[in-house]
């Protein structure tokens, strides 16, 4: 279950409980006010049940009415349909990176040099805040593909251009709050909690990769 649905379900349950309690209390008041007139106690309880049911059905109805409105705020079908990006990677030289957009986010594609790969492989897992093997993060050793969004608060780290600041670990450096990423996109130093995300992708052939 995705988060909005969970939130909605919980909200619905709370609304139901709240309305039921309020209606019981309020109707208790009304009934006791009418007690002076009313003679038959039996009928009182039946009436009570009827009124509480009416109010509850009404409350459920109003809550359900909001459902289409809340649901409509999810990404629309045309947005969902644009979930893939095809990239030509034949022109990227070793050590170079390109940035492409996928679902509106920047995706880093870097052709790693031998040193980069060695560095990424030799990092001690126990030293990492978010331990993950380099081999789990790439499909072909040469190619590192990342969602270029810092896992701290969503800035785009620098390090794509040769002249950029790449941080202490020769990967990426986030200018917002100083997180350092290594040549596998893993967090090494700074406030970010997790490694940069690897998007779903596959190589269609040697020169094209499909992201999403």
């Amino acid at each position: 279950m995705t988060t909005p649905y969970l939130v909605l379900t919980v909200t619905l349950i709370f609304i139901f409980l709240f309305i039921y309690m309020v209606s019981t209390v309020v109707w208790g008041k009304v009934v006791s006010a009418n007690d002076k007139k009313a003679e038959l106690n039996k009928e009182e309880t039946r009436r009570d049940f009827l009124h509480v049911s009416t109010i509850t059905i009404g409350a459920i109805g109003s809550a359900t009415f909001m459902w289409p409105f809340i649901k409509s705020m999810n990404p629309a079908e045309d947005t969902l349909a644009l979930g893939t990006t095809e990239v030509d990677i034949s022109n990227i030289d070793e050590g170079q990176s390109i940035t492409v957009t996928w679902r509106g986010k920047p995706v880093f594609i870097r052709k790693r040099s031998k040193e980069d790969i060695a560095e990424a492989k030799n990092a001690k897992l126990s030293n990492l805040p978010d331990p993950e093997k380099d081999s789990d993060r790439v499909k072909k050793e040469d190619w590192l593909i990342l969602v270029g969004v810092c896992t701290h608060l969503g800035c785009v780290p620098s390090g794509q251009k040769v002249s950029d600041k790449k941080g202490d670990f020769n990967g990426w450096y986030c200018p917002c709050h100083g997180s350092h990423y290594d040549t596998s996109g893993r967090i090494r130093k700074g406030p970010a909690p997790d490694n940069m995300e690897v998007p779903p992708y596959k190589f269609l052939n040697d020169n094209t990769v499909l992201i999403g």
Binding site: S53, T54, G58, G61
Partner: peptide, 16 residues
């Protein structure tokens, strides 16, 4: 259907 069912309940409540 919801409005009919709700309506019946409201109608009974109203009558009482």
């Amino acid at each position: 259907l919801f409005f009919i069912i709700f309506g019946i309940f409201v109608f009974l409540s109203k009558r009482r």
